[in-house]
Amino acid sequence: MLDTKPQRRKPVGYKPGVGSRASRVVNLVGLLALAAVFLIPFYLIVRNALSTTQEITAPEWMWFPTDIQWSNFAELFNDPMVPMARSLWNSTVVAVLTTVGTLFLCTTAGYGLARIPNRFSNHVFYAILATLMIPSAITFVPSFVLVSSLGWVSDLRGLIIPTLFNGFVCFLCRQYFLGFPRELEEAARVDGLGYWGAFWRIVIPNSKGFLAAIGVITFVTSWNAFLWPLVIGRSSDSWTVQVALSTFLTAQTINLPQLFMAAAVAILPLVFVFLFLQRYLVQGVTQSGLKG
């Protein structure tokens, strides 16, 4: 083998020096090209959001708008036909409360199952596992039946509350707490804390990375959800941003720059999540992919 010594930043899974220099260059160039392709949709959102209709539909492809149309932003929010501000607010409320609620319910339940001996804990655990067999999207008819009899259609309660009791997140929490170092809690118990106290003062503060990972992925999923908000959001007051966008997209007359400005606004929060919390998101994906 040629050069096995300089193993500083060795790519795992591939021995350094494996493959010729040429093949590594090909790999890099290929990746750069692919990366460019992957970014095209984002480029198109930005270009179209800041162009005029004439520029978007011009006979010659225009790579960039001649004048950046910031006014599209104001027009989007002033358009009475599209309840953009309202739907953004709804999405924010739904995603934040869903994340907080899911974290609270699933970590407490997961901790209880992992750490507090009880003769029913296996029964409870199997009752939770059984719900994982069926993808949640398919249960939208049954859930709709229940939510509509509670009178929560077109109501944010209907969007939030039924999604909080996430068996999968609870399962992840249980697995995580099973691996949490017992010594820390025992120290707390010696100091006279009960389960509740130990949980909030010791376990939770020492699980920030895990909570962030689960929280971020819950937030992204909730923000991007479409089917359930569509089922529940029967009136425009309760539309989330995804439902509003979809309505806007399938409308008869379309103002292209406004449509893309709406898309840009809709992905902005998640772009921030990606910029600042990507580490946790990756961790969350890895954790949730753990179980098929």
Partner: peptide
């Protein structure tokens, strides 16, 4: 890290936003 982020970034897009771009622009 750059490549990983770029290929992962579409996950930030909802299917609705992606449909919008696919249908109205690509």
């Amino acid at each position: 890290a750059f490549f990983r982020s770029v290929f992962f970034l579409p996950f930030a897009c909802s299917y609705v936003v992606a449909s919008l771009v696919w249908k109205m622009s690509i």
